[in-house]
């Protein structure tokens, strides 16, 4: 389970994240919506120990990330918005390297299977990543995350740069992972994808979680209205 308890991050005098309370249990997909600078990426960065909280706790399976940064990351997989790999290595080499860092040692057939499942074309496997498009890199990122077999998945706008088909395949992948009991926290701008794939939706504004709702309790139109209203109140705030 992923849990944020009164989690805050302050830069100078400004809160990037203020007093966030959040829980994502096994088999749940929690989608964080919000404008740029709302605190979505900050939340993910705090769970990954990329930054230290000003106050509060980010917990992975009940363990404070700040206390056990390495152990908690072992239980997490992560796909950033703009996934950059090592350009001088091939897709296969990149996957083997990152999976190896996560403690896995997938053999070549397994690597091929992971990349195929992620939707990467076969002829690209042994090509250097320098020649990959953004979407192709993102697919390798998905394969890396899958290779880790983690109980938790952190996604920072993962469908950005993916074509509609790849985006749809990604949604199916999320569904599979959710069914397998993975707890997923996803930051996204994509209201449709959040409504489709998420079990819970949070709307953030200026570092605060303003709304937290179950997807089944809201239609896409209602979600869109709620989101826009929340954003408007930011403008007038």
């Amino acid at each position: 389970m992923l849990e944020a308890r009164a989690l805050s991050k302050k830069y100078d005098e400004k809160y990037a994240l203020n007093n966030l309370d959040l829980k994502v249990s096994a088999g749940e997909v929690y989608c964080l919506l919000g404008a740029n600078g709302a605190g979505k990426t900050t939340t993910i960065n705090l769970f990954l120990d990329f930054i230290s909280p000003t106050s509060g706790e980010a917990l992975v399976n009940g363990v404070n990330v700040a206390d056990e940064p390495v152990a908690t990351k072992r239980a997490l997989a992560y796909i950033p918005e703009n996934l950059v790999l090592y350009p001088n290595l091939t897709g296969v080499e990149n996957l083997q390297f990152f999976a190896g860092l996560g403690g896995e040692k997938p053999a070549k057939p397994e690597v091929v299977q992971l990349l195929t499942e992620a939707g990467l074309q076969k002829e690209a496997f042994d090509r250097r990543v320098a020649k990959y498009s953004k979407g192709m890199r993102q697919k390798v990122g998905i394969a890396i995350a899958k290779a880790k077999n983690a109980e938790h998945l952190l996604l920072d706008e993962p469908t950005s740069g993916l074509d509609p088909q790849a985006s749809n395949e990604f949604a199916q992948l999320l569904a599979t992972l959710r069914e397998n009991g993975v707890a997923i926290l996803m930051a996204t701008h994509d209201l449709f994808r959040a409504r489709e794939s998420g079990t819970h939706i949070g709307i953030m504004r200026a570092g605060e979680l303003v709304h937290s709702i179950k997807s089944e309790d809201i239609s896409l139109n209602e979600l869109e209205k709620l989101y826009l209203d929340t954003m408007k109140s930011t403008v007038y705030a």
């Binding site: 120990d49 390495v70 152990a71 990351k73 950033p80 996934l83 950059v84 860092l101 880790k148």
Partner: peptide
């Protein structure tokens, strides 16, 4: 600068 450090770090590597 490229962002690979985030991905490396996220794998749980000390």
């Amino acid at each position: 600068e490229d962002g690979t450090l985030k991905l490396v770090h996220a794998q749980g590597l000390p």
